[in-house]
């Protein structure tokens, strides 16, 4: 099994699906000869040609709207946002056209809109945002946020084969940082399946994206303090594998939810509400959330580090919940 970075696993999934199904094509800014801002599609134009790897103008509404139209005409487009921050320019296409088409017309819109998100690189307010909650709040859109290379490949293949519009978030801080064995060829991770990445008995940390790795770091440190911490990677926000989350909390009786996105009305609030609804009697401590401070993502390193959720903050909150 080859070892891949998250970025290589995403490229591998795209290449695999494009070889398997000629209806799959890519569109986005600078993705052809240049290979994309992060080089996810490096070498693609040589293999698949410019008809299937389409460079676009800086026009996110045309990229996403164009993908929707191509899907209505029988193709399977994967659109790249150079940075997921720019998805705001195509917001109307996603929430009003893509998200309502199945409901109103009964027609599939098998598009994937993927791209890099997240902070930690001093990239400032317009290249660092975690935008997933906007879309999780829009019925009709699926929302995927992998933390590991093998999951990224399997989830992206599942997203491409899904008849619904799927938003696929890739934390750019993980692109080249995380490396693991990734199955060659066919590898599908069904959307809506969470994964217990570390089993434990005393506390559940529910996380996704970059915070899964922070949670694993915190779990290792707490183990040295004598606490057994379970880490659940939900992998997809919509659909949410509620059963795995609830089951974990019922076993550990304590839960901390964490995401890099800002706190208020973040997806952690939804998870917390569902736990309160379905596992209230199992809880031995209040449900706590660790998320970013409610502000735009600032640029200077001290500010950004203060604003984003850190391992220290998560560790501190976990200790409080364990001691409650």
């Amino acid at each position: 099994m080859p070892t891949m970075t998250l970025l290589q696993a995403i490229s591998d999934a795209l290449r695999y699906e494009m070889r398997r199904d000629e209806r799959v094509f890519l569109l986005g800014e600078d993705i052809a000869e240049f290979g994309g801002a992060f080089k996810v599609t490096k070498g693609f134009v040589e293999e698949f040609g410019k008809q299937r790897v389409i460079n676009t103008p800086i026009s996110e509404a045309a990229i996403i709207g164009g993908a929707i139209g191509a899907a209505l005409n029988g193709l399977i487009p994967v659109a790249e946002m150079q940075f997921m921050d720019f998805i705001t320019n195509g917001f109307n296409q996603l929430v009003n056209v893509a998200a309502t088409t199945a409901y109103r017309w009964g027609l599939p819109v098998p598009i994937v809109v993927r791209g890099p998100v997240g902070g930690g690189m001093s990239a400032g307010p317009f290249h660092s945002r975690s935008a997933e909650a906007w879309f999780a709040h829009t019925p009709g859109l699926k929302v995927v946020f992998p933390a590991f290379p093998a999951d990224a490949k399997g989830l992206l293949i599942a997203a491409i084969r899904d008849p619904n519009p799927v938003l696929f978030f890739e934390h750019k801080g993980l692109y080249r940082k995380i490396r693991e064995d990734v199955p060659e060829g066919e590898h599908v991770v069904p959307l809506g399946t969470a994964r217990i990445v570390r089993p434990g008995a005393d506390l559940s940390i529910i996380a996704y994206g970059r915070m899964v790795h922070t949670a694993l770091e915190v779990a290792a440190r707490l183990e040295s303090e004598g606490a057994s911490v379970e880490v659940v990677d939900i992998r997809t926000l919509v659909p949410l594998d509620e059963a795995t989350v609830i089951d974990s909390v019922k076993r550990t009786n304590r839960v901390v939810i964490t995401h890099e996105a800002t706190l208020t009305a973040g997806f952690g609030a939804e998870i917390a509400a569902r736990i309160a609804d379905k596992a209230f009697e199992y809880l031995d401590a209040p449900i706590r959330r660790v998320a970013a401070f409610d502000a735009p993502v600032p640029m200077a390193p001290p500010l950004e580090q203060a604003m984003l959720p850190s391992a220290e903050k998560l560790l501190d909150t976990c200790r409080q919940v364990l001691e409650y």
């Binding site: 026009s59 509404a61 709207g65 164009g66 139209g69 005409n73 029988g74 193709l75 056209v97």
Partner: peptide, 21 residues
Amino acid sequence: ISHLGAMIPVAVGYALAAQLK
């Protein structure tokens, strides 16, 4: 849809798919 203008990129995408096929 009621947001007039929204279907222009969609119609263009439909045309692009025809071109590709």
